[in-house]
Design a protein around this nucleic acid. Structure first.
Ligand SMILES: [Mn+2]
Ligand SMILES: [Mn+2]
Ligand SMILES: [Zn+2]
Ligand SMILES: [Zn+2]
Lengths: 168, 168
DNA sequence: TCCTTATTCGCACGACTTGCGAATAATCAC
DNA sequence: GTGATTATTCGCAAGTCGTGCGAATAAGGA
């Protein structure tokens, strides 16, 4: 999303009022890569502004979403998550922590998919499920991302068995 | 999922009892490509067995999931959906109807993704969002799927504006 | 400062799912 | 077939997450 100042400007342009609650939320969401839930954001906001209501957090996030400043993410069935990154990107989910990371994929068009006849694709969302290996804490250099080709560890699914026997 | 008879056999092997409710649900889920919700399945089941409870539908679907006979799908934030297809596959969602279609992708490994450093991918899920164009109803030939390369119509997102002006 | 009305925020409610336990019924031993 | 055992069903309560509602409050302009 845009900077708090820019978002504030857009708010004014639209006749919306600049409240302390909104300004706080603008700053908390700006450059926020944690994909927070409403409750999570509310907790953080409450430290700086005790008394701010969860309802207001929901409302402001909805406004930002309507304005295209943030994106909504449904996901694992848990709480809705808010994404301050509105660029075209995808996600990696750590199965252990539930953390979400942004992932950029540049060759989605190359996917060979057997789509239903007559289906017109508008956009594609990809989620990489996996684990973030424990850092060997060698070079403290924050190496956020690294280009690589996907290689699933094992496509092993649920514990199915080969039903053999009295199947008539 | 396996055939009702096979699932029934697996149930017995595990000391579970074969009730009419379960048997009905086995048959309703077998080869069911509609990715139904619990409520949807309950409605259908209620026609053949008036009185069957929604609670039992949830319970049985959970059992089938635990046994690896079906898969759970979270998704758009609405109700949980149950997938009788446990093969490795992906989905296409019609934005108009919400219908879900199975999609097979054979070259996921070719994706070039900038994953977080140290992230080990276990599996990837892809969702194609779009619309199912109205059939010209020419050949009634049910042509379920057709291989093709993905080509998004337009990556246009939310209605953002170029914040120009009083940005300090 | 005063007025207008957008905003905040608590509460109720809705959608979806799960916990709980009494009543019921499937399965087995005899 | 009869009876005992206990897994299962099912209604209801409760939990989670998000939204509708409206009175009290406060932003922003006159
Ligand atoms: Mn909205
Ligand atoms: Mn389960
Ligand atoms: Zn993101
Ligand atoms: Zn499917």
């Amino acid at each position: 999303m845009h900077s708090p100042a820019e978002v504030a400007a857009r708010y004014k342009e639209q006749g919306r009022r600049l409240t302390p609650q909104r300004q706080l939320l603008f700053s908390l969401m700006h450059n926020n890569a944690s994909h927070p839930t409403a409750e999570g954001l509310h907790e953080v906001a409450s430290k700086r502004m005790p008394g701010i209501s969860l309802r207001t957090v929901y409302q402001t996030l909805d406004e930002l979403s309507d304005m295209g400043e943030i994106q909504l993410m449904h996901g694992d069935g848990g709480a809705l998550r808010f994404d301050s990154n509105v660029d075209e990107h995808h996600h990696a989910v750590c199965a252990e922590t539930g953390e979400l990371f942004d992932v950029y994929v540049d060759n989605i068009e190359s996917l060979r998919a057997q789509l239903p006849a007559g289906f017109e694709v508008q956009n594609v969302s990809i989620v990489f499920h996996g684990r973030l290996a424990k850092k060997k804490s060698q070079t403290t250099t924050k190496s956020p991302a690294r280009p690589q080709t996907v290689r699933a560890k094992s496509t092993k699914r649920s514990p199915r068995r080969t039903s053999r026997g009295s199947t008539k």
